[in-house]
Design a binder for these strands. Structure first.
Length: 566
RNA sequence: UGCUCCGUGGUGUAAUUGGCAACACGCCUGACUCUGGAUCAGGAAAGUCUAGGUUCGAGCCCUAGCGGAGCAACCA
């Protein structure tokens, strides 16, 4: 065992912890740490969000502060309560709580409106009648400054007219797209976001919370920073791409603030995982086009997908902990995620016998009239998991891969003349095979040595291999779904002008039916997790029913034999 | 081409803030094992993008270059 972490060299701090501690030591915000997790309810959460959630809630927890849940619901055309509910479920599943601090950007529509009105009154915002095309045409490029809209000029449009138009925009008098409200900042700014950004647009789609009260909605950039400000957020943690938005947020807060309090935005690297895509837009496409079975398809990097796949919240949090927070754009190896779930399930998943591709074994010197109950530990590494009884009889199933008629060197499994131990039962020796017309082995005949029963007089005899097995008479039928990476390319969205779907892995799902599992699994319920010994970790799918068991393979075991054969 | 950010083993992160480049995953070897799992012991693998500079001493500071990413939605 390793030493407890506390007496090891203290874990080094990442740059955000350092920043927070510096603020704390300087007495900023009266020693408060208050963060927020601000999802848009327009899709399901994925593991990239888990990274943000762990940071937002984690920093608050670590420094004795609070973390708000705030839905960024400023665009009714894309958002829905379905997503609100799933997001809350996923955050709870991860193990975090926002107590009574469930907020919505839409809670602040009134304040935001008032702020916009105040900007107009101060000559810092104006209504622009131009089309979207015209406005973007005047925006300039990254190397060339933009041109000012003629409506920017107060001689053309007075403050009074701006106010009148803004009110009428919200009364529904004008069509969507016919007018917008813009902040008057700097059309020549090297930062594109400062070139008179649009802050309000007309949208007549009813909002999932405010109904049709509003006809104008604030843009994200006009809402986000101010909401943080309204909530007294001290540290606004977000991903790298918002770095260039920060000056704009600061500009708005400058117009709003009454003292020197200001949320501090710190940007960190987003999570990218190999062999998958992580943008909500791309994930939504996979769902809509039925490439996968839904948001919770076990191949999806969504939290609901990982949950259905058999991942535990602890393993997800452990993974997030392992990858850290930096400012380097990185792509994390999915095998580290797999390590995290193996590590967790190795401790908690009971061991059972499950045979994916059954091959019949007949013990020729074992009576056909008896059944023995073999007493087998549920987790060899941890006695507290207890033991169970597994029935053994003359006819068994073993894994097809565990038998070879003409084995290569170092094949420690069953082969003619070769001995193996049946885990928890007897040592058997292969005495012959039965083949069908096609020459395939359909039955393996073995003899057993009664002295070698586990716990018996000859139990200590060494044989090279140990196999898992199920009694043919007692085994339960099951369907097993094997998952592989969704994409065959390490970085499917990392190719310019190539649709990631060019790289879809056609073998990402394999459904096996007629699998045989031990009878103790009869009552297994969805999301129950097991290790099918020597095969991998599996969890019961939502589709599973008593008498029609369905398992998902979460992840395989490390397989030295398979690796040797690569 | 403008602005912003970033370059440390294969991957992801560290380096007590200027002092022997460390950790995890992966890989290799051995031990142990009634899971070819787990566990344990050991090993290979970067000299920190490049070139200068400051310094007794630079991954860290300075200068220049090179390379990568982000930003021009009435999306968030």
């Amino acid at each position: 065992m390793k030493e407890p972490e506390s007496i090891l060299k203290p874990e080094s701090q990442h740059f955000i912890e350092q920043a927070i501690e510096k603020d704390l030591s300087e007495g900023k915000n009266g020693g408060r740490v208050h963060t927020r997790f601000p999802p848009e309810p327009n899709g399901y959460l994925h593991i990239g969000h888990a990274k943000a959630i762990c940071l937002d809630f984690g920093m608050a927890e670590q420094y004795g502060g609070k973390c708000n849940l705030r839905f960024d619901d400023t665009n009714p055309t894309k958002e829905d309560v379905e997503y609100v509910d799933s997001i809350k479920e996923d955050i709870r599943w991860l193990g975090f709580t926002w107590e009574d601090r469930e907020f919505y950007a839409s809670d602040y529509f009134g304040k935001l409106w008032d702020f916009a009105v105040s900007l107009i009154k101060r000559g810092l915002a104006y209504v622009d009648d131009q089309s979207a095309e015209a406005i973007s045409g005047q925006k300039g490029t990254v190397t060339r400054p933009g041109e000012e809209s003629r409506f920017r000029n107060q001689d053309v449009r007075s403050i009074e007219e701006n106010l009148d138009l803004f009110y009428r925009m919200n009364e529904g008098e004008f069509e969507e797209g016919s007018r917008v409200l813009r902040a008057k900042i700097d059309m020549a700014s090297p930062n594109m976001h400062m070139r008179d950004p649009i802050i309000y647009r007309i949208l007549k789609t009813p909002h999932h919370r405010t109904g049709s009260k509003w006809k104008v909605y604030p843009m994200y950039d006009f809402a986000h920073g101010q909401c943080d400000y309204f909530e007294g957020i001290t540290h606004s943690l977000c991903t790298l791409e918002f770095e260039v938005h920060r000056p704009l947020y600061d500009w708005f807060i400058d117009q709003l603030k009454t003292d020197d309090y200001r949320p501090r935005q710190i940007e960190f690297n987003r999570l990218n995982l190999t062999y998958t895509v992580m943008s909500k837009r791309k994930l939504l496409e996979l769902v809509k086009d039925k490439v996968v079975r839904g948001w919770d398809d076990p191949r999806m990097p969504t939290l609901c997908g990982l949950r259905r796949r058999g991942y535990t919240p602890e393993s997800v949090r452990r993974f997030v902990d392992l990858i850290g927070y930096t400012k380097v754009e990185a792509i994390n190896d999915v095998s580290l995620l797999e390590y995290a779930i193996r590590e967790d399930l190795n401790k908690r998943a009971p061991r059972v016998f499950g045979v994916l591709k059954p091959l019949k074994v007949i013990i020729i010197n074992y009576s056909g009239n008896i059944t023995e109950e073999m007493d087998i530990e549920n987790n060899p590494g941890d006695e507290s998991h207890g033991r169970r009884l597994v029935p053994f009889s003359r006819e068994l199933f073993i894994e097809q891969d565990d038998f070879m008629e003409n084995p290569p060197h170092k094949f420690f499994r069953l082969a003619p003349g070769q001995e193996v131990r049946l885990k928890g039962a007897y040592i058997i020796k292969c005495t012959g095979v039965v083949k069908n017309d096609a020459g395939e082995v359909t039955e393996v005949h073995c003899s057993y040595d009664p002295e070698t029963r586990s716990g018996g007089p000859q139990a200590g005899r060494k044989v090279k291999g140990t196999l898992h097995w199920v009694s043919a008479l007692h085994a339960l039928d099951a369907e097993v779904r094997l998952y592989d990476r969704l994409f065959s390319d390490e970085d499917p969205s990392g190719h310019r002008d190539v649709d990631p779907r060019e790289f879809l892995n056609p073998d990402s799902l394999t459904i096996l039916s007629g699998c045989k599992v031990e009878p103790s699994l009869a009552e297994a319920k969805p999301l129950d997790k097991f290790q099918f010994q020597r095969v991998g970790y599996f969890c019961v799918d939502y589709d599973s029913r008593p008498g029609r068991l369905v398992f998902n393979r979460t992840v395989g075991l490390k397989d030295t034999w398979a690796r040797m054969n690569r």
